[in-house]
């Protein structure tokens, strides 16, 4: 493996981990409600921007980061309560429009609360590159990968071992049956927005020191996260993670070896090609509908 290849791989993994976190957010909400939350990208933005301003008023990371995550989670809960919940029985298109409206609202609000400038965030632990196999990796990238891994482990524990997690999983498999065994599916839906928002915010905080942040970072990151979730197969947790990593790596590789101008287009080309052969993504539920 050439050092260049390793370099692209490391960068790709870092970017991919962020996509994976955003994609997990999409999947969690989709499972609870069959809603695609197009405002998912805004949680990423809120995480980053809130941390920037909390740090600016003098808070240490140890306080600023949890506060920023909590802020995003609250916004997520509010979004569910005031925009999604009232339209629970509406059609897919209607729900898509609602969450897109919410994303514009949040972006507009962010523009007012903050500004239109780019903001940098200090890396969590220094910015001296670490050498690996002829390539280098930023300490912040190590944070990204480590935290993503920790989250994936924590989530699989949550969904596999805790009652609440199992309730959420049950709801995603069969809403009616879950309701019948006494699961409060509305509460599950509500919480899924909070959890997704928190995941998005973490992604936003982790990536901000590497790419800077601004009121509109959510647009592209949201779309890429959606692409990753679709690539993996909507609703599949493992699919979201793998979809994110694949997307990040392929994107970085093709930007490096082919054309950096089309870096952002690559993700969507991959999506189209994959969907052409696997109409429900890599790990999505297969099989036609019954009549």
């Amino acid at each position: 493996m050439s050092p260049q290849f390793v370099q692209y791989l490391l960068t790709g993994l870092t970017v991919g981990a962020i996509y994976a976190l955003v994609a997990l957010g999409f999947s969690i909400i989709f499972n609870a409600s069959h809603v695609i939350n197009f405002a998912q990208g805004e949680f990423v933005m809120i995480g980053g921007m809130a941390t920037v301003s909390l740090v600016a008023v003098g808070l240490p990371y140890l306080l600023a980061i949890p506060l920023a995550i909590a802020t995003a989670a609250l916004v997520g809960l509010a979004l569910e309560k005031f925009a999604v919940e009232p339209a629970r029985d509406a059609s897919v298109v209607t729900l898509i429009i609602i969450t897109i409206g919410a994303s514009m609202f949040l972006r507009g609000l962010a523009m007012l609360v903050w500004d239109k400038n780019l903001h940098a965030l200090k890396p969590i632990t220094g910015d001296k590159p670490i050498a690996i196999a002829g390539a280098t990796i930023l300490p912040q990238s190590v944070w990204v990968l480590g935290v993503t891994l920790a989250i994936v482990v924590a989530l699989s524990w949550f969904f596999g071992r805790t009652l609440l997690g199992k309730a959420m999983l049950a709801t995603s498999h069969n809403r009616l049956a879950a309701q019948l065994v006494g699961i409060n599916v509305r509460m599950v839906l509500f919480l899924s927005f909070g959890l997704s928002a928190a995941l998005g915010a973490i992604a936003g905080i982790l990536i901000a020191p590497i790419t800077t942040t601004s009121y509109d970072v959510g647009v592209m990151l949201g779309l890429k996260g959606f692409a990753a979730a679709i690539l993996g197969g909507l609703g599949s947790g493992i699919g979201a993670v793998i979809g994110g990593l694949v997307l990040g790596i392929v994107e970085t590789m093709s930007a490096g070896y082919l054309s950096s101008a089309y870096k952002d287009a690559i993700a969507f080309v991959i999506i189209l090609v994959v969907l052409f052969f696997l109409p429900s993504g890599l790990f999505g539920k297969r099989g036609g509908e019954r009549v």
């Binding site: 779309l223 679709i230 993700a267 080309v269 052409f276």
Partner: peptide
């Protein structure tokens, strides 16, 4: 033809992707 074989959110993603690709080509 291939895109319209998809349904629901997958169709949304594919058409979105098509639009984004056209946008990228035009602006590049």
């Amino acid at each position: 033809r291939p895109i319209l074989r998809l349904r629901g959110h997958y169709l949304a993603m594919a058409t979105l992707g098509l639009g984004v690709i056209i946008f990228m080509v035009i602006s590049t």
